[in-house]
């Protein structure tokens, strides 16, 4: 089922979905900022040029999630500046060139980690996480079941999380 909404339509949807969105934002850790997040969101959708949105409710939830992430990132970096975390200070000390070299080395390790899980896991991870293709589209493209795509993604993300733990310990 597809419904369409123009920008003013989106604002109407935001109003009617306000309780659900607020509940989501509270669960998502927005705390007292939940109303502010919705306010930001309201301005965002009024500022955008009129464009059709296939699923307005999902669109608003996703946009709310994104606004929240931006705000949390901003406050996190404020906190970090205040505390001057040692590890952050250290990494800032490393010269730019060296940091690029470390990043390249880590990228190689990440690529090897994915390939070690098999070429299909590697391909599915790239299509999904880097190219932004949906799981259903990937399943069709590769002629495999949706649950196979899901399992491969879980494998890839799990392995990358373990690799991140290793990087953090270095």
């Amino acid at each position: 089922m597809t419904s369409l909404a123009s920008t003013s339509g989106l604002q109407r949807v935001l109003e009617s979905e306000r309780p659900r969105l607020l509940r989501f934002l509270a669960a998502r850790g927005a705390g007292d900022d939940a109303e502010d997040v919705l306010q930001d969101l309201w301005h965002k959708i009024s500022g955008a040029e009129a464009r059709p949105v296939a699923d307005p409710v999902s669109y608003l939830f996703r946009a709310a999630e994104n606004v929240l992430r931006d705000r949390q990132r901003a406050s996190l970096s404020r906190d970090r500046r205040q505390h001057e975390w040692q590890d952050l200070a250290n990494s800032d000390d490393a010269p730019q060139g060296e940091r690029v070299l470390i990043a390249r080395q880590r990228l190689r390790e990440a690529e090897e980690t994915l390939l070690a899980l098999g070429p299909r896991v590697d391909q599915i991870f790239r299509r999904y996480r880097l190219d932004g293709l949906g799981q259903a589209a990937i399943a069709r493209e590769l002629g495999i079941s949706l649950s196979s795509v899901e399992k491969d993604l879980q494998k890839a993300y799990r392995a990358l999380a373990q690799l991140k733990d290793k990087f953090d310990a270095e």
């Binding site: 659900r20 899901e150 993604l153 879980q154």
Partner: peptide, 12 residues
């Protein structure tokens, strides 16, 4: 993982 899918709709 699920939230990254543009067709994700399980917000509740």
């Amino acid at each position: 993982i699920r939230l990254q899918d543009s067709s994700f709709d399980g917000w509740d």
